[in-house]
């Protein structure tokens, strides 16, 4: 059990789960907290790591006044027990046996299940080409920045492209903007290659990106989405 900060407002919890059955990249767990008076609150969190015995990593974004995330990112201490149900979800998953190229498009904390896929690709020895487009507000808001830099260099067949929506790094070649046709065309795959597309982020982000991919010619059945709502507090 351990915890590490990813950004000033996001924290990864490393949990040791006895009898964990293993999981697929993209699956999530439901975390339930119970107060002394019996009041319970439950939220879903994507699993961040590739399957690794009983080890489970969750990256939690602190939502202001979010009753579960404020506990997990602030009050929670290493060693405190948490109640977990899962792994659950079979739709937004990627399996290392899949032969098709993959496009991952993440917005903010929506990177978490996509990171599990990137990690599972390497762990499973897959050579399927992956492209990640990661939309963040500013350079400080990106999760897993060091690891993504290293993997983009060392994991053969992985491309990583950032889109900054509010403030870009110094000397960045373009002004802040949202993920649109240009980014999806430049850093994504042509629809003719029939990639599997995974889009995860806030509802508006997911709607826009998925609609744009379909408009560019991608098969809607191959565009899988997962929305992180502000209800995820």
């Amino acid at each position: 059990m351990a915890a590490r900060d990813e950004t000033p407002s996001a924290r990864t919890l490393v949990l040791d789960v006895p009898d964990w059955p293993g999981h697929q990249a993209g699956q999530h767990v439901d975390v339930r907290l119970t107060a002394e008076d019996g009041y319970t609150a439950q939220r879903s969190y994507s699993i961040a790591n590739a399957a690794d015995g009983g080890r489970l990593e969750l990256t939690v974004q602190r939502v202001p006044e979010g009753e579960v995330s404020e506990y997990l990112t602030g009050v929670y201490r290493v060693g405190d027990p948490v109640e977990i149900r899962g792994p659950v979800g079979g739709w937004f998953v990627w399996r290392p046996a899949e032969p098709d190229p993959v496009l991952l498009v993440g917005g903010g904390s929506g990177i978490v299940p996509l990171m599990a896929m990137i990690r599972a690709r390497k762990a499973g020895g897959s050579r399927v080409p992956f492209r990640l487009i990661y939309s963040v507000r500013s350079p400080e808001d990106g999760y897993y920045a060091d690891e993504l830099r290293t993997r983009a260099r060392d994991d053969s067949g992985l491309d990583v492209a950032y889109v900054y929506t509010r403030r870009a790094p110094r000397n960045w070649p373009e002004p802040p903007r949202r993920v649109g046709v240009a980014a999806l065309n430049t850093a994504g795959w042509p629809p003719e290659l029939a990639p599997l597309c995974y889009v995860c982020g806030p509802t508006g982000f997911v709607e826009t990106v998925a609609d744009t991919l379909v408009a560019l010619g991608h098969d809607p059945a191959r565009v899988r989405t997962e929305r992180f709502g502000p209800t995820g507090g």
């Binding site: 202001p64 149900r85 659950v88 979800g89 739709w91 937004f92 509802t203 929305r227 502000p230 209800t231």
Partner: peptide, 26 residues
Amino acid sequence: MTGERIDDYLDGNDLAGPLAELFAVD
């Protein structure tokens, strides 16, 4: 949970846990 907009929604992925309580398959 304050400040939520009622027109925001999640998706069916979030049904996986609650439905796993009832059904043997996903």
